[in-house]
Nucleic acid binder design. Structure first.
Length: 605
RNA sequence: GGCCCCGUGGUGUAGCGGCCUAACAUGCCACCCUGUCACGGUGGAGAUCAGGGGUUCGAAUCCCCUCGGGGUCGCCA
């Protein structure tokens, strides 16, 4: 990358200069990163997007420039003209890419002074995030944030190039569209021209891309902004970017294969050091829940959950017995090398487990004294359950969890969903504590065979697991009327390092089946028409079989940048309270604006 | 909506009932300094301890409320 030739005030960028430019007169412009004033000589580290170069003001070369340089301060915008010169022997700086040379200045001007910045731009110190967000334009000058912006651009460019090479076209879809009843809360935009009516910002271009398939686009993608008025998290923002993608005349394999190829080549291009699992592992939803306790497992490490119910129910241990008697399960994980966990450490884990609904954790600690699992004796086992279990039963549990002497078994008894949930969280916690995940790895994997529906207690009706347009598996279609919970959807998720990176499905393309699903979701026929009539109508004009996927770009870039939140890879993110601290948005509007929109504000109690 | 954490000169931290008239580092300002690169030296300015209320002889410190930021549960098809 180079700014060369783009801007007239400069003909080289600071970061690109090296020994090859010796003797060249260069014109540079940028920001003062740091000034070192020796009274005689003044050194300035001049920074632009491409890097830093040392420029030297020598009063013997130009007393006027030296005088101007003495006025310069951090973050002043300056322009200089000078000669690229080899640094005197012994004064080279190997820490700087441009450290073999310097620019001896013959002409200089201050283009714009700067106030002292509210935080360090030239140091990688932690700064309060609200301050960074208030002055985001300064925060983005810092090298780490600049690198994140560039990385994001490269990811998006690689995606566009890849999909272009596969015959996809990018189509823009409306931002002002229609509110939909399913899913998240909509961001709404009042219509000036239609009293009492509102547009909604898209939660995703889902229906639009399906209509593009009906339109015969066949291979569509879009780097699409999506909006959901829900509470934020480290990996969730009110607005975010999806790679939205849809294809006609395909099945699951086409999508999964395409995305795998895309991500593999993308990672190789932007982060060659990152290791992937290839081919991407595929787990059924059931396997993921049973073995990892979550539908978005971190596949960088094992520590799989194992079912111990059969062994546990042979014991005389009340906690195990009563769990099994009430239809529950007993399952566990093995924390390697954690046999000597302290009381305090147990307490922390117990608190975590209780907070998630478990009664508590039963631990079995296997002493290091044994040379192997077979050599264990009762004396080497530490557990409140020990006197209710035979040595043989303990060995069977250890064997099923692939535990060895020195390891710690964490066992949960209770309702199957709670057991999986708690062990899933304990697995994450222990994985983090024991640093089991290779930080250089990005473990993508597919989760397939999700249930199509789940029963919503609060709504008292079936809800779509993914969204109401997901195609059921052919062989499960008869179950829609008899056992909706057993219907599996042709839906797939992609996970990466424990994050849901994306999800997609094959879609329903027959109006009648779609209508049937809407009815199952509790819509009356007279409600379906105004809400989804446009889609059903489209399906009656020759809709091709189609399907697609959407990937969360923010999360993907976050993982590639090794950041902890997606805010670090978004130029102007919002706070947890969904405000923009740079603009101070949202903000009140005037009475005139309200009146024009036919709106008045309600008094709240 | 619930729970948890944080808020002290510009920035990052220390102080956690009296030793605080608030410390340290850095930044900032002035002066000195021709080979530094986190330059160095000398001197200086800079804080109603987020805001409000309470407890106490006495509060940066303990309690309550509010505001702001973060994490998380709910929520996010």
């Amino acid at each position: 990358m180079s700014l060369k030739g783009v801007i007239l005030l400069k003909n080289y960028s600071c970061g690109e200069l090296n020994k090859r430019h010796l003797g060249t007169e260069v014109s540079l412009a940028g920001w003062v990163d740091r000034r070192r004033d020796h009274g005689g000589l003044i050194f300035i580290d001049l920074r632009d997007r491409e890097g830093i170069v040392q420029v030297v003001f020598n009063p013997e070369v130009s007393p006027q420039c030296h005088e101007i340089a003495s006025q310069m301060r951090s973050e002043y915008v300056i322009r200089v003209v000078g000669m690229v010169t080899a640094r005197p022997k012994g004064t080279e700086n190997s820490k700087l890419a441009t450290g073999e040379i310097e620019v001896v200045i013959q002409d200089a001007e201050i283009l714009n002074p700067s106030l002292t910045p509210p935080f360090y731009i030239n140091e990688e110190t932690e700064v309060d995030e609200s301050l960074r967000l208030r002055y985001r334009y300064l925060d983005l000058r810092r090298p780490r944030m600049k690198q994140n912006l560039i990385l994001r651009y490269r990811v998006e460019r690689a995606i566009r190039n890849f999909l272009d090479s596969k015959g996809f076209i990018e189509v823009e879809t409306p931002i002002l569209i229609k509110s939909t009843p399913e899913g998240a809360r909509d961001y709404l935009v009042p219509s000036r021209r239609h009293l009492g009516s509102f547009y909604a910002l898209p939660q995703s271009p889902q229906q639009l891309k399906q209509l593009l398939m009906v339109a015969g686009v066949e291979k569509y993608f879009q780097l699409a902004r999506c909006f959901r008025d829900e509470d934020t998290r480290a990996d969730r923002q009110p607005e975010f970017t999806q790679l939205d993608l849809e294809m006609s005349f395909i099945d699951e394999e086409d999508i999964l294969g395409l995305v795998e190829e895309m991500l593999t080549s993308l990672v190789a291009a932007v982060k060659p050091g990152v290791k992937l699992l290839t081919p991407f592992p595929r787990l059924s939803y059931t396997e993921a829940m049973e073995n990892y306790g979550t539908d978005k497992p971190d596949l960088r490490f094992g520590m799989k959950i194992a079912d111990l119910t059969d062994i546990a129910q042979e014991s005389g241990f009340t906690i195990f017995e009563s769990a099994v008697a009430s239809g529950g399960k007993v399952k566990g994980i093995c924390a390697p090398g954690s046999a000597d966990y302290t009381h305090k450490q147990f307490d922390e884990l117990n608190q975590l487990a209780r907070g998630l609904g478990a009664g508590g954790i039963i631990t079995i600690s296997l002493s290091r004294a044994a040379g192997s699992r077979d050599e264990l004796t009762m004396e080497m086992v530490r557990s409140v359950a020990a006197k209710f279990l035979t040595l043989e039963q303990i060995k069977r549990m250890a064997s099923r969890l692939e535990a060895n002497p020195g390891d710690l078994l964490l066992i949960i008894a209770g309702k199957p969903e709670v057991v999986n949930l708690v062990l899933g969280e304990l697995r994450q916690e222990m994985g983090a504590r024991l640093k089991l995940a290779d930080p250089a790895q990005l473990a993508f994997g597919y989760i397939v065979n999700f249930p199509l529906l789940h029963w919503s207690k609060e709504m008292g009706r079936w809800e779509a697991e993914h969204h109401p347009f997901t195609m059921p598996r052919d062989e499960d279609i008869p179950l829609i009327d008899t056992a909706p919970e057993k219907v599996r959807g042709r839906h797939y998720d992609i996970v990466g390092n424990g994050y849901e990176i994306g999800g997609g499905s094959l879609r329903i393309y027959q109006a009648e089946l779609q209508r049937k699903i809407f009815r199952l979701l509790g819509y009356k026929d007279n409600e379906i028409e105004p809400l989804f009539g446009h889609l059903l109508e489209a399906f009656s004009y020759g809709a091709p079989p189609h399907g697609g996927i959407a990937l969360g770009i923010d999360r993907l870039v976050m993982l590639l940048a090794k950041e902890k939140t997606i805010r670090e890879v978004i130029a102007f993110p919002k706070t947890q309270e969904a405000t923009d601290l740079t603009f101070k948005a949202p903000s009140p509007i005037t009475e005139e604006q309200l009146a024009e929109l036919h709106l008045c504000l309600r008094e709240e109690d």
